[in-house]
Design a protein around this nucleic acid. Sequence first.
DNA 1: TTGTAAGCGTTATCAG
DNA 2: CTGATAACGCTTACAA
Lengths: 341, 341
Amino acid sequence: MKPKLTLKHIAKELDVSISTVSKALRDSKEIGEDTRQKIKAFAKLYNYKPNNIALSLKNRKSKTIGIIIPEIVHHFFTTVISGVEKVANELGYNVLVCLSGNSFDKEVLNMEMLANGSTDGFIMSLAKETMQKQDYHHLEEAINQGMPLVLFDRVVDEIACDKVIIDDVIGAKKAVQHLIKIGCKKIALISTVDYVIVGKLRTQGYKKALEENGLSIDEELILKIEEIEDSEKKIGNFLKGKDVDGVFAVNEHFAISAIKALQENGKKVPGDVSVIGFTDGELSKRFIPSLTTVSQHGERMGEEAARMLIEKLERDVEEIENYKTIIVETELVVRNSTKHY
Amino acid sequence: MKPKLTLKHIAKELDVSISTVSKALRDSKEIGEDTRQKIKAFAKLYNYKPNNIALSLKNRKSKTIGIIIPEIVHHFFTTVISGVEKVANELGYNVLVCLSGNSFDKEVLNMEMLANGSTDGFIMSLAKETMQKQDYHHLEEAINQGMPLVLFDRVVDEIACDKVIIDDVIGAKKAVQHLIKIGCKKIALISTVDYVIVGKLRTQGYKKALEENGLSIDEELILKIEEIEDSEKKIGNFLKGKDVDGVFAVNEHFAISAIKALQENGKKVPGDVSVIGFTDGELSKRFIPSLTTVSQHGERMGEEAARMLIEKLERDVEEIENYKTIIVETELVVRNSTKHY
DNA sequence: TTGTAAGCGTTATCAG
DNA sequence: CTGATAACGCTTACAA
């Protein structure tokens, strides 16, 4: 086991000073052509690579981005990470991933961990618990310490920072409008409780679509689900014997549970009822019938978030705060769970 | 924006030396009770947290683990990450995630990046390209530099290091045996090409099960797929008009494509044909019929990998090399794509 | 009991 | 053109 080569080793070996080696390797023209060549040749030969940690300490920046998300066994989040990774790598950054597991405490802990030099900035989607508590002091602290933060998907108005979201309202509206266009009149909504911001927004979109098309809003046709665990049962009960011809669900899972429930009640999808989901994962693509869905372009979101963050990181000038919110457009992907017209 | 508090600041503020502060905070009994209290109180008040980078440089260890995997939008890999994250966090480590995108070059680059101090060791599943090229010099280099490496899932015999794998052969055998037990006689195999080690092993298990049960191996019933893209078509063609009563597929996707193909050919699953997949993802659980599958326990694999790696990292004594291979047992999860008996 | 100094690996400034 | 020195933030012999 050979220890890592350092400038010091090279200097000793070549009988020059450390700073000469450093300069030579960075092509400083202070150094004479011949010594420079000699040093570079040696470094190449023994495959010298500067130590990132030392550089981080010196430059006071780690060139790494911290991502904190609620969970990773989750298609949408992985697409976002994938996007972040891509542009981060292109721009010479590494990606440190931490999971909050939807716990407020763990989110805070992770953030504190990473804020002590490990990371130059954060890309986050907030834990459910955090949104319930509405306690964002950890985010504020990071920002106060000069660590840029980009929030995506689960964002909050209370924090002034860059954000990447999708047009949830519009996306939901598009979905419901599609249902209306293909002839649905009694459209149910399966959403999450309101403190999950995206559930709230998608509910707004649902209502807007109905209103704009002269359909009345029937609260009886709206189900709000708290826990994912018993969602299948809840959806089953909710749909049992209900007279609907369209269902809009705010995620894949609910959509599929809806389809199952409908089929168990002897209804055909899309024959009798058309169903639309949200988020375009494996399930949507491969389920039978394949799901018509509002696709979120997670990878694009990740790319945008990374780009914004790195931009902030690289302009050292402390400019006037100027926060952007990028809205990544959703796209209605029509497949087989909705009637064609 | 207040800059991060350092020992230096505290020292100046309290008019003591830096080392006094350092010692006091680490509860050295060299320091007098009163000064210690004073310093600790101050530190708490202003929320002092030591700088990780400085610690890393000093201790020559980063307390972070590098994970390099082919892709992240992939259920199995995310479960593994999840497991790694869990034990890493418990033991005070961070997790740096890099994606190779199945490219050899990117795998090498990522590894070199992280090897320069960012990471104390690696947990990896190799890129497909790497396995094809059989070029493992980057792995050897890391090991030579004293960076522990744990390989999982896509491992290679050529490299001496800790490994976490599943009992692919046994798992596949179990699956096929189950098919035999419920009465299948003509069992097809849908696998990957052989350089994907798991495909090879699962094929072995398939053959073993047949042999041990006195069934002959019919190469006509074996399909090996190179690219995931056109797998659906390939499987469709393969199964068309084929007289089978059981299908064993080496992943969820192939299994589902098989079911679709069978249904399109007017066969019922599991009525006419029983189908078993591998890997227990969302698809398997929620598809209709839900998939009987060989579950891999990715999370457990991640936990084991992290534990092994950290164990190596924490015992500084350069012991005699002693590599373990942990085999995480698979489990046959019986659901509705196979006949009950 | 407290402080000084060296060192982790690097770069930047300033002398020589 | 080259080298010594200080600094990034922290720990730890060793001095005082």
